[in-house]
Amino acid sequence: MSSIRVLIAKVGLDGHDRGAKIVARCLRDAGMDVVYTGLHRTPEEVVTAAVQEDVDVLGISLLSGAHMTLIPRVVELMQAAGAGDMLLVVGGVIPDEDVPALRALGAADVLLQDTPPDAIVARVRELVAARQPR
């Protein structure tokens, strides 16, 4: 039986990982396999790990405000790595006006800081179910 695999990552100079850990824990408690890579990762490290782990969902948590710099880089690297069928979900403190831009870049969804844990779990399940099986 296959579980949903998710990688939760913090990229860049962002020292706040409590949210990421709580999300990881919620997804675990929903029966998913969650790879957590810790703080201060580069986009290159995160995408390499996501490809090797062949996760269904790459979840990136950002509270630093650098999302419009870092997410484009992540998307670019995912495409270069042939990880086109991987779902990118961005979470954290993101101004509302940046959400459409992140979606346009290729984020499957952007979950803001007020998203309840149950909604995160439900959304991840929904996104994975809607995608081509692999």
């Binding site: 675990r28 408690d29 029966g31 396999d33 810790g38």
Partner: peptide, 20 residues
């Protein structure tokens, strides 16, 4: 987890500098 069936896979954290 014996309860939810989920898992936190954290071994990679110790190997981050090998990633690239």
């Amino acid at each position: 987890s014996p309860f939810s069936g989920g898992a936190i896979l954290g071994d990679r954290i110790r190997m981050n500098d090998l990633a690239l």
